Simulated scan of single mutants.
Amino acid sequence: MKPLQHGLAMPEVLIAMALSLLVALAAASLLHASNGDFLHNGANTRIDDSGRFALSIIGQSLRQAGYPGEPGADAATGPAPPLAIEGRDAAGVATNAEGLGDPQASVNGSDALAIRYAATAIIGATAGGAMLNCAGFPADSGEWAWSIFYLARAGDGIAELRCKYKGENGWGSDAVVRGVDAFHLLYGIDTDSPRDNIPNLYLTARGIDALDDMLPAAERVMRPHWRRITSVRIVLLLHGESGSRGGNRLSSYELLPGADPGARIDEASLPAPMQHRARRLFTATVALRNP
């Protein structure tokens, strides 16, 4: 066979080209796998940070629930202080409505949580307060403040945990954490008489409402079972960026197994861009200091 100009026969050139292609394919595969691992690890780190931050903010607000304020403050007086804590199952919240307002469409059947407390002034200060709402703002001393948590979608369609509060110029709502698929709650209720502030069972908001509905009308108006809540169990499901999980397998997540069949996320039912993402459940149980 006639040699080529560079001194290699045609079969040798073909073999060299095939080997070069194999090396290039192997390098591309390694790069793709390395990039996938980078996305996955980065997404999980961000999910961990976001989940811990969300639980911290909600827990801090829950520990303030029912705080009566300064001795003799107007907010702490009266025979019927407002509910320290109130929840709704599978409900969103309107930003401009008073408190929880009328139920709105929820994100993936997520719940809403409202917390009330009376602020206390900082010792020696002439203004401001030591008690902060979920947005980090102090409430006026002597009035019942709000911290309301719920899910809503941002302008780009990504769901986020939001904090609703009452400011000087009306109601406001700020994003706390982005990338939240679901937010669910169980309420620990003390059914003992006399009370020992230890929960005997955990119920959804509908379960607490059902107990109040069985009471005579004169008692029901006070919503006494909501006043017996001594702890709250929080469950959040967060997701990472697109491409943060490889493979074709779709997963399902039970957020409150045995307690609420509706607290479930099936990736197959989500829009295609929201599937195949890194996801993680975060749970915490917070005891109320001021039931």
Rank of each mutant, 00 (worst) to 15 (best):
W146N: 05
R153F: 12
A154N: 08
C134G: 14
E143P: 00
N169M: 12
A127M: 09
S141E: 15
R153E: 14
M131D: 14
D174S: 02
F149K: 02
C134M: 13
L161I: 01
F137L: 13
S173N: 03
C134D: 12
R178E: 05
M131I: 15
F137S: 10
F149S: 01
L161N: 00
R153C: 10
G136Q: 02
I148D: 06
E143L: 02
N133C: 06
D174Q: 02
S147T: 04
S147I: 02
Y150L: 01
R153T: 13
N133G: 08
G172F: 09
I122V: 15
W171G: 09
A130T: 14
W171A: 09
V177G: 01
D140S: 03
N133Y: 10
A135T: 15
G167N: 00
K164N: 00
A130M: 15
A125P: 09
L151E: 09
A145I: 05
D156E: 08
G167A: 01
G170E: 11
G124T: 14
C163H: 11
G155A: 09
R162H: 06
G157M: 05
S141I: 14
T120Y: 13
C134R: 10
L161D: 01
A145S: 08
G129S: 04
I123D: 15
I158E: 12
I123Y: 14
F137V: 10
W146E: 07
A154G: 11
L132K: 15
Y165C: 02
A125N: 12
K166D: 02
A130G: 12
F149E: 03
K164L: 03
W144P: 02
N169G: 11
T126S: 13
W146M: 07
A152S: 12
A127K: 09
L151K: 04
